[in-house]
Amino acid sequence: MQFISGLPQGVYVGQTQIQHPRALASTSSALAGFNLALHVNDQTARVQQHRMMLLDQLSAYGVNKITWMRQTHSTLCHTVNHQQSFNEREGDGLVTQLAGHALMMMTADCLPVVLGNANGTEVANLHAGWRGLANGIIENTIEQMQSQPTWAWLGAAISQPCFEVGTEVKQVFCEKYPPLESAFESGKQFGKYQADLYAIARYILGLYGVKVVLGGDQCSYRQSDRYYSYRRDPQAGRMASFAFMA
């Protein structure tokens, strides 16, 4: 687990990887390593222990609360501060202004995006697959925030050479944002295109005034020693991206 540098003082952002010194053994090769997802047919007790290990690590930096959610490739975003619901939240975006509260998003090819303001008093974390990006998860999360985000971090996602989509996907983006034509390259098959999730996210962030965008240089599909990938193995586990303020 590594923290991202270049952020406002007191803001911590990072992403877990497959390798973890305390990861529990698994009978499934697809789930081997530090899986943090409950919805991938892993043993519930194993996943919960992994989550507690992560909380223990982050507590050294002042974290006393973690929010997970049931992600649905939606555009739903929730603000979470002092009051916590006993029911699992559904959606793909979280915002907080509360120090010590870590926001979690699970991915295995989709794009994790963390946002924050210049003062380090508000952070957001969101899960952006192509559907979420097309339907407005970034836009909705920014609107949910109380302050203008000035920076973003893009975690490990599937890279353009490995992400083939159909014409209908390209059309959805280009009808909404015509300049995104440049984020698609012709694929090997007729009617197929290789989509650049990083470029799409950077464009949308730029429209909303986010000038500093960090990360966006990994590939969850190719870097099999570091990251889970759904396209590489549909039975794969999930990493977690996190953001919190100390």
Rank of each mutant, 00 (worst) to 15 (best):
C110L: 02
H78A: 05
A124Q: 02
A246Y: 06
W153N: 10
E90V: 12
S241R: 02
H78W: 14
L31C: 07
E168A: 07
I158A: 04
R222K: 14
F244K: 06
L180N: 03
G206R: 01
R222N: 10
R202N: 05
P112H: 05
D42E: 13
V210H: 03
A102R: 05
M145T: 02
T44C: 08
L36D: 02
V80C: 07
M1H: 14
G33E: 10
I142R: 00
N135Q: 15
V47D: 00
E122T: 03
Y12T: 03
S186H: 12
G120D: 06
I204E: 00
A124F: 09
N64V: 08
N119I: 01
D109Q: 09
L197W: 08
C162K: 13
Q148F: 04
E175K: 14
Q146H: 13
Y177D: 06
L36F: 01
E90F: 10
E185L: 11
K65C: 13
A108T: 05
S229W: 10
Y12E: 11
S159K: 02
M69Y: 06
T44N: 09
Q17K: 11
S182E: 13
V169W: 04
R226H: 12
R51W: 00
G91I: 05
Q57L: 11
L180Q: 05
Y12L: 15
H50I: 06
S5V: 08
L38Q: 13
K188A: 12
F173K: 06
W153M: 06
Q235R: 14
N117E: 09
S28R: 15
Q2L: 13
Q144E: 13
A240V: 15
P112L: 06
S182R: 11
Y12G: 02
I200G: 00
T16N: 03
A102N: 08
N135L: 12
Q148K: 10
A243G: 08
I138A: 01
C77L: 03
Y221T: 04
G14C: 10
S182A: 14
C110R: 00
P21F: 13
G100L: 04
Q144A: 14
G62Q: 08
